[in-house]
Every structure is written in structure tokens, then in C-alpha cells.
Amino acid sequence: MWFIIGLIIGFSALGLFWLFKNKKFNLTWYEWMIGIIGLSLLFFTIQNFFGSLAEFEPKAAYMFLLVTGLPAVILLAISWQLVTRRIKAKS
């Protein structure tokens, strides 16, 4: 699982780097912050979801989806919306 998460992080970082370099893309400090917190929370959720299932604790697994997974998705959505709306407003 960590190998797959590592691959996702690697490709995401590569994609971001490509956007920065070729599309003159930039992020404000708070977009960075919200995005990083959201992504960390998402990975925390994924790890604990599968970890809880391995521990014979299915209810705890689904609680992780709700308690940490949902805020993670919301934070990532906020970060994405902030960026797209800022770019739209500029153009």
C-alpha cells in the first residue's frame, strides 16, 4: 500500500512541477497549506482504513472514512476551487 501511495505522491509532485514550469502556474501560501493538510489527511485516512480492516475492526475503518476522510476531501476541494476561481478571475 505504501508503495502505491508513494507512486501517487511521486506522480502528483511531477505533475505539479510540470504545471509550474510549463504553464506558469502558481499557488498562494494558503492554497499550499490547505492542499498539503488535505492530502496528508487523505493518506492518513487510507492507511488507517486498511489498517483497521487488518485489525478486524471494520466499524473503525468506516469511521476513519467519515471522521478524517470527509474533511480531507473537503479541504482538497476547497484548495482546488480556490485555485480555479483565482485563475478564472484573472482571465
Partner: peptide
């Protein structure tokens, strides 16, 4: 009683 499968 939990081991460390979950990082929490």
C-alpha cells in the same frame, strides 16, 4: 489491544 497496523 491494538497492534500497529493502523498508524493512529
Amino acid at each position: 489491544n491494538k497492534f500497529d497496523d493502523s498508524t493512529v
